[in-house]
Write a protein that binds this DNA or RNA. Structure first.
Lengths: 182, 182
DNA sequence: CTGAGCGTTCAGAATATTCTAAACGCTCAG
DNA sequence: CTGAGCGTTTAGAATATTCTGAACGCTCAG
């Protein structure tokens, strides 16, 4: 591996490690492939990055799932050859949909579940007072409003539409029921 | 802690754990505070979540840094009391700027460094051929174009401006120099 | 058939992260 | 002053993650 590639591999590896989306090794694999004019065999990747074949095998799967790397047939070889994808927009869509929006919905689901528990268990032993319940409901609604708006914004964005940041920002003052003061 | 809060704490904890931004415990702390009508003392939080004070102390700092939690003085007590912030837009700005954009720039810096190494070490022993160097330069440029565009888009968004997804998407076909085929 | 050449699985080693509890040091009431 | 009541630091325990190498099983050339 030439010096420029080594530097790039290290740098992207570091960036990936803190991204919360890829691991350092995934970043390194992608960086290596991205600067190669030809597809590399699993074995070559392992050798370049000084990792075991099994580790590369497992780790590269995630990259394929994010559409960052493609498995391409190379004539005359039975080995799996991988090459970097260059359609970053596609990758971004994937991340937005499968990670960010999925995460938002997870939070929204938590709020919905809590809401339900609040209604049902209104007369449990540890049940909150009517007043407290109202406060909680308000907070849950606030979260729901904002997260739903963000979800919609991301949806619009990944479809290549125009996203109005101002509109989202304006959701804020609507919620935020003040905390009780002493 | 009432049942609804417990469910919310678990759900948000799970969401946070996979978010890549907060840890599970940070999610749990925030969720707990968010449904409280009053600020809680460090000790209370530790008790509710069944964690040591020291762990809460360290973990909650991250939440304060993201502006998800505020340290609020409570009259008549020397203890630190925390309450959830409700300005999600502010938090989002913070995350966009300090995590996403910072990460993009890290990647851009890696590309720039590689570029420099390519120029300098043009005659090193492991130096790539002129042809390969040209290929690498092309790839680095492609990454730079896309990442710079995303960076600008996020910048616009966090300032509440209108973001054009279509424009970003159109950056794609400009780059993507084809991989050599056999 | 059959075995060489692959990628994958898996058990456990290596490493990193998270968590605890004790020690510490600051602050302020007395 | 001084010590009770705090949050923080820290060393190490507990736990989770990452990585390896051997074993496995598939495929295909011979």
């Amino acid at each position: 591996m030439d010096r420029a590639t080594a530097i790039f591999v290290d740098g992207i590896g570091a960036a990936a490690a803190t991204s919360g989306i890829l691991t350092q090794l995934q970043g390194r694999i992608f960086a290596l492939l991205y600067l190669q004019p030809r597809a590399l065999a699993l074995e070559e990747i392992a050798a370049e990055l000084q990792q075991s074949k099994s580790n590369i095998s497992v780790t590269i799967r995630g990259l394929v799932e994010w559409h960052l790397v493609r498995l391409t047939p190379v004539g005359g070889s039975r080995k799996d050859h991988y090459e970097a994808a260059t359609n970053f927009w596609r990758v971004m869509q994937e991340v937005m949909e499968r990670r960010f929006r999925w995460n938002l919905r997870q939070a929204l689901a938590a709020a919905a579940e809590a809401e339900r528990a609040l209604e049902q268990g209104a007369r449990g032993s540890d049940a909150p007072s009517r007043e407290t319940a109202a406060f909680i409901t308000g907070r849950l609604l606030g979260l729901k409003l904002f997260f739903t708006a963000v979800d919609a914004a991301i949806g619009a964005f990944t479809q290549g539409k125009v996203v109005d940041g101002e509109a989202l920002r304006n959701v804020v003052p609507l919620l935020a029921p003040a905390t009780k003061r002493r």
